[in-house]
C-alpha cells in the first residue's frame, strides 16, 4: 500500500492550485523515494514536473511503485475541503481503484475522509536531459508574477533577455510596447528578495505569455523563482518546495520564421 502524511497540508493544496488548470489528467507516480508527476499541457507546449520527496513527509510508505491516475480538477475540489493548517494524508491500496485523502485539523478535533476514483492513464514520460543553461536567474516570485501579469495586458508574447546586467522582459501589441529590466540586486536584507544572475552566454528567447501567466499560479509555493534559459531550448520556471522538492514548468519557445 501507499501512504503519505504531510504535516504542511497547505503545500499540496498550493501545488494543485498551480497545475489544475494546465494539466487535466495525470499519473502521480509513487515510489519509495516519493511522489513524482510529469505531464504536458493539452497543447503540448508546456510540461509540468513535480517532485515531493519521501523525506518531506512526516510518514511515508510505498510498498510497490504505483501510478495513481488522477483528474486534477476533482482532486483540487477535494483538497479545497482541507483547512490550510490541516495535516493531509494520502492513501491508496496496491490493487485499489481509489485514493483517499484524510484531513486532520491541528488539534485533531476534526477528521475528514474523502475518497476519489482513480483513472487508468497511460502517460508516456518525456526524457528531460540535464542541461548546463547559458543563463540562470533567481528573483522574487511575486516580482516575476507581477511582471508577467503587467506584460500580459500589453501583448501576448514576451521576449526574455539575460545579460550580465540583469534580465529584461519585453512585449508589444496594438496599444504599444513595454520593456522591463530587473537588475542583479544582492544588497537587500532578506536573501529571498535578491535577484541574482548567473550567466555564461547572453541569451534572448520569445515565449507565449499565457503559459508564463499560468505558471505563476505556483507563486504561493516559494518566495523565489528560478528561470533557466539556453538558446533555442525551453525555459525552465522552477519553484522550490522547501524541504520537499520542486514544481518545475518547461515552456517551448516561439522561433522566428
Amino acid at each position: 500500500m501507499f501512504e503519505g502524511r504531510l504535516l504542511q497540508g497547505s503545500l499540496l493544496k498550493k501545488v494543485l492550485e498551480a497545475i489544475k488548470d494546465l494539466v487535466t489528467d495525470t499519473n502521480f507516480d509513487c515510489s519509495e523515494t516519493g511522489i513524482a508527476l510529469q505531464a504536458m499541457d493539452s497543447s503540448h507546449v508546456a510540461l509540468v514536473s513535480l517532485l515531493l520527496k519521501d523525506t518531506g513527509f512526516d510518514h511515508f510508505r510505498c510498498d510497490r511503485n504505483l501510478a495513481l491516475g488522477i483528474n486534477l480538477q476533482n482532486m483540487s475540489k477535494m483538497l479545497k475541503c482541507a483547512g490550510n493548517d490541516d495535516i493531509i494524508t494520502l492513501k491508496a491500496e496496491d490493487e485499489g481503484d481509489t485514493i483517499t485523502f484524510m484531513f486532520e485539523s491541528p488539534n485533531q478535533d476534526k477528521i475528514s475522509d474523502f475518497e476519489m476514483k482513480l483513472m487508468d492513464i497511460d502517460s508516456e514520460h518525456l526524457g528531460i536531459p540535464d542541461t548546463d543553461y547559458q543563463a540562470i536567474v533567481t528573483m522574487p516570485s511575486a516580482e516575476f508574477q507581477r511582471i508577467v501579469r503587467d506584460l500580459s495586458s500589453i501583448g501576448d508574447t514576451a521576449v526574455i533577455g539575460v545579460t550580465k546586467e540583469g534580465i529584461s522582459f519585453s512585449t508589444g501589441g496594438d496599444i504599444g510596447k513595454a520593456n522591463i529590466v530587473c537588475r542583479q540586486n544582492t544588497n537587500v536584507d532578506k536573501e529571498e528578495d535578491q535577484t541574482t544572475v548567473e550567466i555564461h552566454e547572453p541569451v534572448s528567447l520569445t515565449f507565449a505569455l499565457r503559459y508564463l501567466n499560468s505558471f505563476t499560479k505556483a507563486t504561493a509555493l516559494s518566495p523565489q523563482v528560478t528561470l533557466s534559459l539556453s538558446k533555442e531550448l525551453p525555459i525552465v520556471v522552477e519553484y522550490k518546495i522547501e524541504k520537499m522538492g520542486f514544481l518545475r514548468f518547461y515552456l517551448a519557445p516561439k522561433i522566428e520564421e
Binding site: H44, L126, D156, T206, P234, K254
Partner: peptide, 14 residues
C-alpha cells in the same frame, strides 16, 4: 511574433 514550437520536439519520449 514567431512560430510556437512543441515541448515534445525538445524532450524525446523515453
Amino acid at each position: 511574433k514567431g512560430r510556437q514550437t512543441s515541448i515534445a520536439s525538445f524532450f524525446g519520449a523515453k
